[in-house]
Simulated assay, not measured.
Amino acid sequence: MTAYALEQDYWRLLGEGVGAIILYAIVGLVLMLIGFYAIDLTTPGRLRGLVAAGKPNAIVVTAAGLISMAFIVVIAIFTSGGALLEGLLASTVFGLVGIAAQVISVRVLERAIGIDIGKAMHSDTFSPSSLVVAAAHFALGLVVAFAVF
């Protein structure tokens, strides 16, 4: 008969790991919310209302914005390493800087290309310009995420 024993510190390490997951999830959620509101504040119209109303362009831009924010948050957490407190702090700082860089970059790109995103966001019909803005969110989210890395 074979007896299996757990390492002496197993339960402590397991508890610390679970605690770290919960704390990083909270930091990630807060950063995603900040990212959403940053997109909302810099985009004409209330995104939440436009998405709830089923405006297709608002849905496309919001989805791309959230995905791009997730890239930034994931890489900020991934690169934070070290002790838990330092990791949480680094994730928060890198995440906030990344979100600001993302939002500013997308708005500059919209102006440079000449897209009237406000008109597209309120439209009841799909506008291809929303795909350009979505692609800008996606691409710049990757750029900013890898800058954090």
Results as ranks from 00 to 15, higher is better:
Thr2Val: 14
Ala3Leu: 15
Ala3Cys: 07
Gly15Pro: 09
Gly19Lys: 15
Ala20Ser: 08
Leu23Val: 04
Ala25Asn: 11
Val27Asp: 00
Leu29Arg: 15
Leu29Ala: 11
Met32Lys: 15
Ile34Phe: 14
Tyr37Arg: 14
Tyr37Gln: 06
Thr42Val: 11
Thr42Trp: 13
Thr42Asp: 11
Thr43Tyr: 06
Thr43Phe: 08
Gly45Arg: 02
Arg46Ala: 15
Leu47Lys: 01
Leu50Arg: 02
Val51Ala: 12
Ala52Phe: 06
Ile59Tyr: 01
Ala63Gln: 02
Gly65Ile: 02
Leu66Phe: 00
Leu66Glu: 02
Ile67Val: 15
Met69Val: 12
Met69Cys: 11
Ala70Asn: 04
Val74Thr: 05
Ile75Pro: 04
Ile77Phe: 05
Phe78His: 06
Gly81Met: 09
Val93Tyr: 08
Leu96Lys: 12
Val97Asn: 02
Ile99Cys: 04
Ala100Asn: 01
Gln102Thr: 09
Val103Asn: 10
Ile104Cys: 09
Leu109Glu: 02
Arg111Lys: 14
Arg111Leu: 12
Arg111Trp: 00
Ala112Pro: 01
Ala112Glu: 01
Gly114Gln: 09
Asp116Asn: 13
Ile117Trp: 10
Ile117Gly: 01
Met121Arg: 07
His122Leu: 15
Ser130Lys: 11
Val132Ser: 02
Val132Arg: 08
Ala139Val: 14
Leu140Gln: 05
Gly141Asp: 03
Leu142Tyr: 14
Ala145Pro: 11
Ala145Phe: 10
Phe146Asp: 01
